[in-house]
Design a protein around this nucleic acid. Sequence first.
DNA 1: GCACAGGTAGATT
DNA 2: AATCTACCTGTG
Length: 322
Amino acid sequence: MPDLTLPQSASDPGWSDWQPLKGIPAMTAAVLAETLDGGQAFRWSPQPGDIWLGQWADHVVRVRHVGARSAGPPSVHVLEWSAPAFLAARVATALPAYLGADRDFAALTDALPWRSDPHLARCIEEFRGLRILRQPFGETLLGFLCSATKQIVQIKQMMALLGSRHGTPLVALSTLDSQPSNFVHRLPTWPELAAIPETTLRACQLGFRAKFIHETARFLENNPGWLEETEILPYAVAKERLCSLPGVGEKIADCVLLFGAGRLEAFPVDTWILKALARRYGLDDWKPAHVAHFGRTHFGPLAGLAQQYLFSYERKFSLRES
DNA sequence: GCACAGGTAGATT
DNA sequence: AATCTACCTGTG
């Protein structure tokens, strides 16, 4: 194993100084948590001090919420970031892209039909500032192949095991303790996954998903460039291609396109959305395909963004109301 | 012990 | 075309 020991500094060894996260509008700590750890991504974990530690591709970063915005200009940045010192230059560019800084989510949200949809208006108000992440396409596919009938905490555990057992070590979080768990690992890439036997994958708590991941990895190995082409194809074609992968149906394909390719027209229909549309829109006993059609026509070309507001709201409130 | 969990695929009706 | 079911396994 390479020596990944970081340079030490007095206050926060190995980490860059905290810097304002430019280009990302204000959001509450709760909305930040929902954005990073609400089911779009599975590689963020809370740290002491209201800090989130996250990773994607070969990036590692901490993000923290630093309190309320003061009234009037000059505006105060409410989010700050810090990265391992040797990664900071790359993270400075990659983090805004990951958080979708190239998009004005306030304007996109305003374009949703909330004026004629009181429930959508309520969801937006509850999670104002919510963003759709722009994650690496391949990693997003892996994450949602793990997601079938699993809760977020369990999906995160599967991803953590895949990384720690089969991914390249990226950085040691602490030089005081050389335990393997102190290393942040990359997720295994699809070529790396293709070399792992299905039984070994199963040992990462993947269950029946191991077969799908293994077969998808072998397919991608035999079709170089397939994933990269799919990412940039028009939505309908890209979705059709993703659905041809073993273990990928409409729901997972839409999640990959929404959270891993920024396709805001993708409208994933999961159990939460079924509950939301049954309870809030009277669509009791509607099948997923019908709910999907309703969503696309009712919420329009940004239906995926609407979906995320509805999803977050339902996760927060449906239990206590039922 | 047993139902349930960000589903999908294959069989059956 | 719509409706069942098996599929792994941790969690409550």
